[in-house]
């Protein structure tokens, strides 16, 4: 009887593993990775978005045989990567405006089609503000036309570049510069915001997924799958922001992981409007564990703790677990 050899020391959770065959390693584990977003960029220490962007674009580059054009919305990623006179990008890259990245990408893809160069793949990316708020019209248009673009939203749950203001992805109770933790209801209101991935699914586009910088294997598999398809594809990547969340730079991945493990950020895939895969929670944790290390939620704890808000957030997590079937 032969037993399939497993890697218990590292399982599938670490970036790489010297024991794995080359083809089963992550792109990030290889020395050949393109480092599409290279060193010298000006992202804050421990920036989740910088990490997420390299993770995504490096896979996209591999899948496109390095034949890729990237379009970027205004935002942190754009600002920290391309201040004159230095660019951190190693791929052909264009930034136009805050709200038009999907449309610019449409234009690039159309140009490639016109020139008979469909092998040049197009990736568009933006933050949550640029994607689910100001760029949502263009994004929806790109979706409904089913343009051949992979759009990546790096969701750090607020407008970080402008100094941490509320976005349509800011979670309830979170303190931002425009939802201060003062007054009768502290932080962002409950019952607002939008789930862009679910709205994307409502366009019945070929592929929609959520991913997290905490789960590189899952993220890379999703980008790989998306790159293997044509038409409009959307991946919503959760990227903690130490600055905006008031968390330690070294906690970026831990918080992303806790967001998944609490159920607050469900990981799933959908094709043509139907959910096809859900990543199960591995070690379920209460939301408090996720919220406590973040100063934006500080008012939920301590002397004048808002236990109702805490309970409501736990309920949101539980609802997600139920709705998406996150616990098997």
């Amino acid at each position: 009887m032969t037993q399939r050899v497993k890697f218990y020391q590292t399982g599938t959770f670490t970036v790489g593993n010297r024991l794995l065959d080359e083809e089963n390693r992550t792109v990030q584990a290889t020395v050949e990775r393109s480092n599409s977003l290279t060193s010298g960029h000006r992202a804050c220490q421990g920036c989740g978005e910088a990490l997420g962007a390299r993770y995504v674009v490096d896979v996209a580059m591999r899948e496109a045989n390095n034949n890729l054009v990237a379009v970027n919305a205004t935002g942190c990623l754009e600002v920290f990567s391309t201040p004159y006179p230095e660019s951190s990008w190693q791929v052909p890259w264009i930034h136009s405006l805050f709200g038009n990245a999907p449309a610019v990408a449409t234009g690039v893809a159309a140009a490639m089609r016109a020139k008979g160069r469909e092998d040049t793949r197009v990736l568009a990316q933006g933050g949550d503000g640029g994607t689910v708020d100001i760029g949502f019209g263009c994004l929806s248009g790109m979706f409904e036309r089913n343009d051949d673009i992979l759009y990546i939203c790096y969701d750090n749950e607020a407008y970080m570049n402008t100094g941490v203001q509320r976005s349509g992805r800011t979670p309830p109770a979170a303190r931002t510069a425009t939802t201060p933790a003062v007054g009768p209801t502290k932080g962002n209101a409950f019952g607002q915001g939008k789930n862009a991935a679910l709205i994307a699914m409502a366009h019945f586009i070929p592929y929609v997924a959520t991913a997290s910088v905490a789960d590189l294997h899952d993220l890379e598999a999703k980008v790989t799958k998306a790159m293997g398809m044509t038409g409009a594809r959307y991946i919503h990547v959760h990227v903690p922001c130490p600055l905006g969340w008031g968390s330690k730079p070294c906690d970026t991945i831990k918080l992303a992981r806790l967001a998944v493990e609490t159920g607050l950020f469900p990981l799933f895939e959908a094709e043509h409007g139907e959910i096809t895969e859900v990543t199960q929670i591995r070690r379920k944790v209460p939301v408090e564990e996720y919220l406590r290390p973040q100063r934006r939620f500080a008012h939920l704890f301590g002397k004048s703790a808002d236990t109702d808000a805490l309970a409501a957030i736990q309920q949101m997590a539980d609802r997600n677990i139920e709705k998406f079937g996150l616990s098997g």
Partner: peptide, 15 residues
């Protein structure tokens, strides 16, 4: 807004 943005992308890609 999208119309001109698409043109921007297309033009930047050499079309």
């Amino acid at each position: 807004f999208a119309a001109l943005s698409v043109a921007i992308g297309a033009s930047a890609a050499g079309a």
